[in-house]
Write a protein that binds this DNA or RNA. Structure first.
Lengths: 239, 239
DNA sequence: GCAAAAAGTTAGGACATACTAACTTATTTC
DNA sequence: GAAATAAGTTAGTATGTCCTAACTTTTTGC
């Protein structure tokens, strides 16, 4: 009976709990591309008290999922990174599937995926991906990790950093805030859209954008959440 | 801050945890049609120690989900019944969806649904149901509760109880054991199949069945897991 | 380079869920 | 109807995750 309960004691193969998966995801996205994640950042992203993070982080280090030095933040180990990417893949495949196959509006896929990612098996996720044609990005443009754990880690410019006069194609928008997503949708600032920065008012003022014949103005906070692939600047700076 | 955490304190509207949903489902299926559920039965169905059930059952009673009298089993309250049926609906819609939309084999939908049922929102479940045409039963023939909490509670005869010479249409098979489902699939004892009991060997011996031109023999344990709607007996007893 | 501020940690506790061991109540059997 | 058996409960404990309060370490700003 105790044997039955200890089943697969292969080290590092025990299924991770939902909170653990959330920590790993958070740490991965914070420290994306090598950086370390600070306790407070993790706490903020997960809406937890910093003290809780200290505690959890120590346990995760014991499990070999991350490297932890007291007072100096954490970094995922290879095994932690793999686990994080597995969860991220689930999340993004599920988002894409909900949007594609079930007609979910793009502002609500995140919340639903946030719960399903912990319950869906790898097989389910793979079937979903296959059914909608192995998408490479989720509905917000975030790249979907492959099964073997590789992701596109290209770093894009945000609309807030694009020079006046420059153009870019929207590749990705922040996915967590439904209201923001609805607003971006209204403005039709969507992945794939081509946008030009017409002008930028001083003192963090509004940024005026052109897209096709449309012209609009958004604040820098919003602009920071829109990532673009810059296009060869056809016009130089003007404005 | 404490206000933010106590949010929706409407009594009986707090989201239920996965274990609680599992208890309610188990209690519902055990006491289906009014009966009370015994502690040991609940424990067995959930693979828990009876002591754990005693503890949980008291908490569920405090929450108004069931009526509990020490040493005398439990019965769901109306609110408990509603919660159980909500979970059962999720489970069965998910099973049906996995089979229909994602090509899941019928012996594996149960396990996957067992986890997803706790993570899927009502909206997701409703979209799934709509997408596959509002099915009335899951892949094993179990009736899907409607959104407003009604279910078909017809009690069917099992193949083990069908008289020799009698015929019936398979309406439902037990859903939990993948191996059994695969075996039934091989024999093509599937919901919708018409089957006649040809003979029954004494002392719990094998039951011989006819279905179309096919003839086969199964044990009474397996037969007990196949529910049928008896057909008017066209031939009287013979054999 | 030291004081104030920020960041992070430990201590101690809560809650949900499970367990085993020991006990109590109910049911069965003769 | 009393003893044996079955069913169910309580007591005490463990684990995972979270919290607040108090403390320590690091960083920042002059």
């Amino acid at each position: 009976m105790s044997a039955a309960r200890e089943e697969s004691r292969v080290p590092g193969r025990e299924p991770l709990t939902a909170p653990v998966e959330d920590y790993l995801k958070a740490i991965y996205t914070i420290g994306k591309g090598s950086g370390a994640a600070a306790t407070n950042e993790i706490a903020q992203r997960l809406a937890l008290a910093p003290a809780s993070v200290s505690g959890m982080v120590r346990r995760l280090a014991d499990q070999g999922l991350l490297a932890y030095e007291r007072y100096h933040g954490v970094k995922l180990t290879e095994s932690g990174r793999r686990a994080a990417l597995r969860t991220l893949r689930r999340h993004r495949v599920i988002e894409a599937y909900l949007a594609e196959a079930l007609g979910y509006p793009w502002d609500r896929v995140h919340e639903e995926a946030e719960r399903l990612e912990h319950a869906a098996s790898d097989e389910l996720v793979d079937r979903m991906a296959a059914t909608i044609g192995e998408p490479e990005v989720d509905p917000h443009g975030a790249p979907i990790p492959t099964k073997d754990g590789s992701v596109d880690e290209t770093v894009y410019t945000s609309l807030a950093d694009l020079a006046v006069g420059a153009s870019g194609v929207v590749v990705r928008v922040a996915d967590e805030d439904p209201e923001m997503l609805r607003y971006l949708g209204e403005l039709s600032i969507l992945p794939g859209k081509r946008i030009t920065v017409k002008s930028r008012a001083p003192y963090d003022g509004p940024i005026t954008l052109g897209s096709g014949r449309q012209e609009m103005s958004i604040g820098p906070a919003l602009a920071a959440h829109v990532l673009v692939a810059p296009l060869a600047d056809r016009a130089g700076k003007r404005g």
